[in-house]
Nucleic acid binder design. Structure first.
Lengths: 336, 336
DNA sequence: GTGAAAGCGCTAACAA
DNA sequence: TTGTTAGCGCTTTCAC
C-alpha cells in the first residue's frame, strides 16, 4: 500500500501539487473543472491530509488541550461540554487528557501538549501549578487556569467564588430558622473546602446568634455521609444540629438518606444543604437543596478567555473571571 | 522572542544539530561532557522539541485516541482509567475526545485523529460505525471498537455480553421467587437494551412458570424510574410485578426510591435489579443489586488488543473479546 | 488560475 | 563519538 499524499493526488488529477493544496485551503481559487478532478482523485485514492506536514509548515496547530484531574467528575465533564461546543464554533478541536490527579502524569501531558504545539491549554488542577504555566506561556503557549483563581495577574483564570457559595448555603439555613449548624466535609487543606468553610463562618458571624460545629470528615462520598449521620442520630436531641451544610452533594445525599430512614425528619428536624448540584441531588430520596456553580457557562467562559488571549477576539477585559454560585432550594430545606 | 529549536541549542552548546538529536533520542551515544553542555543549553534556552517536525520525519506518532460519546458517563470514564495506565506503560499517550453523541462531531474527530496520524484508536460509539473504521484501517490506522461486538472478523472489538447480563439478572429474580417480572427501560432500538431484554426473555422461558412484562420507558434516568414506579403503585396488588429488572441503575434507583417511599416494600413485595453497578447503586436508599460489567479491566483489555494489532506484543489470539458481567447482590433483592 | 520551488524542525544514515 | 546532509508532506510566495 503506497502512502497517498498530496503528490499522488496531484498526479492522479493531472495537476500540480500546488493546485491540490490550493484546492484544500482556498477552494475558491481553483477552477471548477480541476476542483472536480481533484475531488475525485481524493475520493478514489482515499487521501488524508497529513497534519504533521501541515503544522510544520504553518507553525501552529488548530487544537487546544483540556487537562483535568478526573474526567468522570461531572463537574469537569459538564465544563467539557461547553468547551467543545464553543471551540468548535471557533474552528478549534479539543483534546482532553486525564491526569488522574497524578502530578507526574499531569506534568507529562503538559510537556506533550507543548511539544504538539497546541494553540492553548485549559488546565484544571488541584495543585499549585502557576509557575509551570508561566514557563509554558513564556515559550508561546497560553493557558487558562480552570477552577482556581490565579494569583498572578498575567495568568488568566476562571474560577468559582467558594467563599460566597459557603456563605449562601449557611445564610439560607439561618434564614429558615436553623440555630445550630454543622459543617460536614474535609480535608480543610483543600482550597475549595477551606473557602466554603470560610463563607459559612462569615454567615454565622453575621447571624449573631447561631453556632457552627465543624465535622471534618472525608472522603467526600456518600458512605461518609452515612457514617456522620449515624453519629448524629445517636446524639441527644439537644446536642444535634438543626441544620447541616455538606461540603458536597455526595455527603449531603448520604446524610439525608441515613437521617431520614433513621427517624430524624428532613427538613423539619434537620435541614440539609449540599454543594455542586450534581444530577443525583435533584433525584435523591429527599431532593437535596444545593449550591450550584455554573457548568456549561463555565466552559464557554474559559474558552472565550483563551480565545481572547490568543487574539482571536477582543482582548479580555479582565484576566480573572470569578463566578458566583446560585442556590437551588429543594425539599431538604423546604420548611413551612 | 526567537524560536528556539534544535539548531539554537546546538549553537549554544557548541555542538552540531545531529549531536543534539542524538542526545535527545539516544543519550547513551553522547559523551558525558557534551551531554552536560547540551542539557544546560536546553534548560537555559527553554527548548521544547517540536512534535510536528519529529513526527513528519518519523512517519508516525506516539499517541492513541480514545473517542467516547460521553466522557462524564462513569462507564467510559472508568475504562479511560485503565486505558491511560496501560498506555503509559507502553510509552503511549492518550488523547480523549468527546463526541457528545453527535455523529457529526464523532466523524470530525475520526478525521482529525487520522490526520494527526495517531498510532491507533479506541472507539466507543452507539452508532454503526464499522464501515468507517474499516476505511480508516485500510489507510493504516487500526482501531478497537469498544462496547459493541464488531461483526467483521477484521475489526477488533471489546464488548460486554449483554444477553448474558440480562439473563443473569432475571435468573436471579426467578431464583428468589419472583413470578411476575417487569423489564423496565428503552428504547429497544439500542443494541444493549435489546440484548438485555433478549437475555431476560431467555431466563423467563427457562423458568417455565414466570411471566415477563415489558415497560419500555425512556430516557434511562432516575426521574423515569420515579414515573414508572408511581404507575406501578397505582395498580392493584395482583397486577403488580413482584420483580423488576431495570435496564440500568439510574432507572433502578428511581424505581426503588418511589416504590419504598410509596409504601411498597423492597425487596419483600417487589425485588429490583439494576445494571452497570454505578457508584450510586451501592449507596442508594435501598442498596441496589446490579449487574456489573468489568470496568478497568475493560480498558486494559482494549489497549492490549490494540497493542497486539500494532504488533507491539503477541498477535491477538482472538479479535473479539467479550466480557461476561457479574451480579452484585444487595438489599434490593435480599429476601429471607 | 496554475505551477515551481523553498523551507518549516527534526531524525537517521552515512561519513569522518 | 561527532558532524553533515537529505528529506519527511505540506503551504505559500512568486512567476507565469
Amino acid at each position: 500500500m503506497p502512502r497517498v499524499g498530496i503528490r499522488e493526488v496531484a498526479a492522479a488529477a493531472g495537476v500540480s501539487m500546488g493546485t491540490v493544496s490550493h484546492f484544500l485551503n482556498h477552494p475558491d481559487r481553483v477552477s471548477a473543472e480541476k476542483a472536480k478532478r481533484i475531488q475525485e482523485a481524493i475520493d478514489r485514492l482515499g487521501f488524508v491530509r497529513n497534519n504533521a506536514g501541515r503544522q510544520l509548515r504553518l507553525g501552529h496547530s488548530t487544537t487546544i488541550a483540556y487537562i483535568v484531574p478526573d474526567v468522570s467528575n461531572p463537574f469537569f465533564a459538564t465544563i467539557a461540554e461547553g468547551v467543545e461546543r464553543r471551540a468548535a464554533q471557533a474552528g478549534l478541536s479539543v483534546f482532553v487528557a486525564n491526569s488522574g490527579g497524578d502530578p507526574a502524569r499531569e506534568d507529562s501531558y503538559l510537556d506533550l501538549f507543548e511539544e504538539h504545539g497546541v494553540r492553548g491549554m485549559l488546565v484544571a488542577s488541584p495543585r499549585a501549578i502557576e509557575d509551570r504555566l508561566a514557563a509554558i506561556r513564556g515559550r508561546g503557549t497560553p493557558s487558562v487556569l480552570v477552577g482556581q483563581r490565579a494569583s498572578s495577574p498575567a495568568q488568566p483564570s476562571v474560577s468559582i467564588d467558594d467563599v460566597s457559595g459557603g456563605h449562601t448555603a449557611v445564610r439560607h439555613l439561618v434564614d429558615i430558622g436553623c440555630q445550630h449548624i454543622a459543617f460536614v466535609g474535609g480535608p480543610l487543606s483543600i482550597r475549595q473546602v477551606a473557602d466554603r468553610l470560610q463563607g459559612a463562618s462569615d454567615a454565622i458571624r453575621e447571624a449573631g446568634s447561631a453556632t457552627l460545629e465543624i465535622i471534618a470528615s472525608e472522603p467526600r462520598v456518600i458512605a461518609t455521609g452515612h457514617k456522620v449521620a449515624a453519629e448524629l442520630i445517636g446524639r441527644t436531641q439537644g446536642r444535634r444540629p438543626d441544620g447541616i451544610f455538606a461540603v458536597n452533594d455526595l455527603l449531603g445525599i448520604g446524610l439525608v438518606q441515613t437521617l431520614a430512614t433513621g427517624g430524624v425528619s428532613v427538613p423539619e428536624e434537620v435541614a440539609v444543604v449540599g454543594y455542586d448540584d450534581i444530577e443525583y441531588a435533584e433525584n435523591s430520596f429527599v431532593p437535596l437543596s444545593s449550591v450550584r456553580p455554573p457548568h456549561e457557562d463555565f466552559g464557554v467562559a474559559a474558552i472565550d478567555l483563551l480565545l481572547a488571549v490568543l487574539g482571536e477576539t477582543q482582548p479580555p477585559p479582565e484576566n480573572h473571571l470569578v463566578f458566583t454560585p446560585d442556590l437551588v432550594v429543594r425539599r431538604s430545606t423546604a420548611r413551612g
